[in-house]
Simulated assay, not measured.
Amino acid sequence: MRRLRIAYRMAALIVWLILCVGAFYIAAPFTRRNPVPPRFLAGVATIAGVRVRRIGSISAPRAVLLANHLSWLDIPLLAGTTGSVFVAHDGLAGNRALKWLCDMNDTVFIARSRRSTVAHQVDQVREALDAARVLTVFPEGTTNDGTALLPIKSALLSALDTTDAGTAIHPVALSYGDATQEIAWVGNEPGATNFFNVLGRGKPIDATVTILPALTGEALNGRKAIAEATRDALTKAMAGW
């Protein structure tokens, strides 16, 4: 049955991809922010067996979401529920097929290890916010197993130091309920193995996207303050699971 589920879901994903790619190019000349990629990603989560619940709301027309990171499913969940684009490590751009899909959703690729690129990163973040209005950063820099947060890397937040006052910064807590430890992508597990483990599950995955209150006051005084406030908010949210 597991193999049948994987085969069925893979076939559904391929058909869904073909339909959405066609729709993307049809819509492209008529819109600045193409509406197809978030809908495609939401469909990916549904085909993978995810049932999504969203708690909370974004408090401004433009927002940066700072989310804990557990799985590749985080991206379909957040895109589907918020319409977000994402910040990704520029190493991912080396995979042509993956970069092609990421570019469709206006992904911002950054060189995290080179401080000389910060000014360019600021411009990229502003352009992404202008186009999509919502952008997600995973400030841990990698996935974790869901039991605790990894250290928040404040360097990843350097571009947020100069976001304007009209941009809300929201910590976002992601949970997959009882399935969290099983679907978390950690350690040396190959990406393909994790992908097929998710597709082969028989039980639905109950996911929750909790948009926590926007940071205010001293929590916005630079990247280190943002990192500390985000860690505190996410830790408290995770303690209630």
Score class of each variant (00 low, 15 high):
A165Q: 13
F30C: 15
S59Y: 05
L92W: 06
A111I: 13
D74Y: 03
A67K: 04
L129R: 00
P213T: 08
I211M: 12
P190N: 05
D232M: 09
G141S: 07
S158G: 03
I55G: 00
A148W: 06
F30V: 12
A88W: 06
R2A: 02
R223G: 05
F86D: 06
R54V: 08
T136V: 15
I14L: 12
A168L: 07
G146H: 09
A192L: 15
D106M: 00
V118R: 11
E228I: 00
L199P: 00
N221M: 04
Q181D: 13
R3V: 11
G83N: 04
V36E: 00
L129P: 01
P139Y: 05
V209G: 08
T46N: 07
I110L: 12
A233Y: 01
S154M: 13
A227F: 14
T142E: 11
F109S: 12
S59W: 04
A219P: 03
N144A: 15
R201N: 01
F24D: 00
L4A: 15
R96L: 07
I226W: 05
N34S: 11
G177D: 07
R51I: 03
A7K: 06
R96Q: 08
L149Y: 09
F196M: 11
G200H: 08
N188A: 13
T46Y: 09
D106P: 04
V108Y: 02
F40G: 00
T210R: 15
K99Q: 06
T107Q: 01
G166A: 10
N68W: 07
P38H: 06
V209R: 12
R5L: 15
T136I: 12
D145Y: 03
Q181L: 14
Y8L: 14
L135S: 03
L157V: 07
L160H: 05
A111F: 10
D232C: 08
A60E: 07
T235Y: 03
L215Y: 05
V108K: 02
G56D: 09
F196E: 02
A93W: 03
R53E: 14
T147I: 04
